[in-house]
Design a protein around this nucleic acid. Structure first.
Lengths: 256, 256
DNA sequence: CTTGCGTTTTTCATATTTTGAAATAGGCTT
DNA sequence: AAGCCTATTTCAAAATATGAAAAACGCAAG
């Protein structure tokens, strides 16, 4: 993974790659991993020993390695610093109950969005998601709701020249996406109709902080069967908007 | 941080230390951090460049560095693999409502416990905690509830020879702690009376998986003023126990 | 109990990488 | 414009990481 800019300590990069590789699997053996990553046995052995010594990885009696929760712990502090989550949560619960749909709070992270909190609905027919889930910017309602309010320069950096196709409905034409983003800006909400995962739709609104900057997005993720246009317009979007505004007020109050 | 066992690639260890150092602060400048960590400017510069290239760190226009959510994202997958959380959450909500106290789900991680989920109570007088919080094994109800059911060998490894004192009430005598753990085993629940943080008490019960192994602990964290003995015995503990059993049943069912 | 294969761990000489001093370039303040 | 602090770049020296090969395991099958 990752490009190689001028200054780069190779060993650290390799170690981080190991971390990432491990996060893909329940657990892994040394030689398997070495093959998969193109590292020599001894090298990976030492990287893993270091990761283990630093507490990022655990080695079982059977010589299998797995991630500990240390990365998560470190990251949790970063998430906590965003704040927002505690203040948003009660509103998300209310929303999930009112709409009986799964509600997500997500933020921009790298070239995608990441779900930092969610509240499941009671409805047994629901989409499988989880806190920590990453979604593409151009293929998610959340992504579009955030993209639409970004400075143009940032947007250019974030959008790759070739938008990846995930389903038949994915918007891969840059101009078309920009048109849609303009529409999102006008309407104040974004939608995703099976553009990333078949059968999955969503509606999202931006969440602003006290200064009016968009810092996150609030969304409901809905199976296609329940995503009729009028329901979205008359039920989902108004409720989302109310919740987002309530969150902003909350943050503004708490902020001072 | 961290000891230096035989096999250890120094560069990776340094890079990980940088990650940890950054997690302590909102953001940091290069020279400050270099001083604080005892690294030379250029070295830290390269480590940060690598961390940035790999997406773990972001560099602002003003040359300030801060963690991204990448560590959290990686860790979130590990947490997700534990499962448990989704299944436990509804029971935790019920418990928080019933008792009007903050409920935590925590697991063993390194030489402490880490909160992997929580549900706040409505009561405005409550203890400040957060998902991702780490607590000492011997100074928390959760820690004791987990310790008590560990194989003796593991327990020996986990408990340092000198238990750290956090408050006047902290149990720092190993023999006393072992006696208390025996008591926890007998009673099936553990308590913490201001042993870690002044004013903060808690009661915890172990959570077992389908095989009967203790995999987590469920706890209520309560300000001292509400932690009367009879309340704990008659109200908190029975409710905790019911919830923990319900979670175990849930996990057992879902597992097959 | 032995043999043998696959894995992990250790050793070690070599090549590479990392390192920090010093020089350079930016920024910001006065 | 001068001064001070921080970030970057360069570069030769020094420390480190590297992988081949050897050694140690662990395990399954004979």
């Amino acid at each position: 993974m990752s490009i190689k800019p001028a200054y780069m300590t190779a060993t650290l990069a390799k170690g981080l790659d190991v971390l990432e590789a491990l996060s893909d699997e329940e657990e892994a053996g040394l030689s398997d991993l070495a093959r998969k990553m193109g590292l020599s046995g001894p090298t990976l052995f030492r990287l893993l020993a270091t990761l283990a010594a630093c507490g990022y990885v655990q080695k079982s009696a059977a010589n299998r390695y797995r991630l500990t929760l240390k990365t998560w712990e470190i990251g949790a502090r970063a998430v906590r610093r965003i704040g927002l989550r505690e203040q948003a949560h009660p509103h998300m619960e209310r929303l999930a109950t009112e709409l009986d749909e799964t509600v997500h709070l997500s933020v921009l992270q790298g070239d995608g969005i990441v779900v930092i909190d969610k509240v499941d609905c009671a409805n047994p027919v629901r989409v499988d998601t989880f806190v920590g889930l990453r979604a593409p910017l151009h293929g998610s309602a959340t992504g579009k709701a955030i993209l639409a309010f970004l400075p143009e320069a940032t947007l250019d950096e974030l959008l790759p020249s070739r938008l990846l196709r995930h389903t038949d409905a994915t918007i891969i034409d840059r101009a078309a996406l920009l048109r849609e983003l303009a529409q999102v800006r006008r309407a104040g909400w974004a939608r995703n109709r099976e553009e990333w995962r078949p059968g999955v739709c969503a509606a999202a609104v931006p969440v602003r902080d006290a200064t009016g900057t968009v810092v996150a997005a609030l969304s409901v993720t809905v199976p296609s069967s329940r995503f009729a246009n009028d329901v979205v317009r008359d039920r989902l979007v108004p409720a989302l908007r109310r919740a987002a505004e309530a969150i902003t007020r909350e943050v503004t109050r708490k902020g001072q």
